[in-house]
Simulated scan of single mutants.
Amino acid sequence: MADQLDDYVNAAARALELPLDDAWRPAVRANLEVALRLAKLVDDFPLPDDAASAAIYSA
Results as ranks from 00 to 15, higher is better:
27 A>S: 14
31 N>K: 10
59 A>R: 11
49 D>L: 10
42 V>N: 01
30 A>D: 13
32 L>V: 09
42 V>C: 00
55 A>D: 13
17 E>L: 03
9 V>A: 14
10 N>R: 15
26 P>S: 04
18 L>K: 10
20 L>G: 03
36 L>F: 04
29 R>M: 04
1 M>W: 06
22 D>S: 15
7 D>T: 09
18 L>Q: 14
42 V>I: 04
29 R>I: 08
30 A>W: 06
53 S>H: 01
15 A>P: 00
25 R>T: 11
37 R>P: 00
52 A>N: 07
8 Y>G: 02
34 V>Y: 02
39 A>R: 13
12 A>Y: 10
17 E>Y: 04
42 V>Y: 02
49 D>T: 12
50 D>K: 05
42 V>D: 03
32 L>M: 07
51 A>P: 01
31 N>C: 09
7 D>Q: 15
40 K>A: 07
39 A>C: 01
6 D>L: 14
39 A>Q: 11
18 L>G: 01
36 L>K: 02
22 D>Y: 07
22 D>P: 04
27 A>F: 12
29 R>P: 00
57 Y>D: 06
42 V>E: 02
33 E>V: 14
30 A>G: 12
9 V>K: 06
56 I>E: 12
48 P>S: 15
12 A>D: 03
38 L>M: 06
48 P>A: 15
13 A>P: 05
25 R>K: 15
53 S>M: 03
6 D>G: 04
57 Y>A: 10
54 A>E: 10
45 F>C: 10
12 A>G: 01
27 A>H: 14
32 L>F: 07
26 P>F: 05
12 A>W: 08
58 S>C: 01
26 P>N: 08
56 I>Q: 07
52 A>R: 15
27 A>L: 14
39 A>G: 12
20 L>H: 05
41 L>V: 06
9 V>F: 09
38 L>A: 09
36 L>A: 07
45 F>D: 06
31 N>Q: 12
58 S>D: 07
46 P>L: 01
37 R>F: 04
40 K>S: 01
17 E>N: 14
38 L>S: 09
42 V>P: 00
43 D>K: 03
5 L>S: 02
5 L>H: 06
28 V>T: 09
14 R>V: 11
32 L>S: 02
20 L>S: 03
47 L>C: 08
44 D>R: 06
7 D>L: 10
24 W>T: 04
36 L>G: 01
29 R>H: 09
55 A>Y: 00
32 L>I: 06
45 F>S: 07
33 E>T: 09
37 R>V: 04
25 R>S: 01
49 D>A: 15
20 L>A: 08
30 A>I: 01
22 D>L: 11
48 P>F: 05
56 I>P: 00
3 D>N: 14
57 Y>W: 01
30 A>F: 10
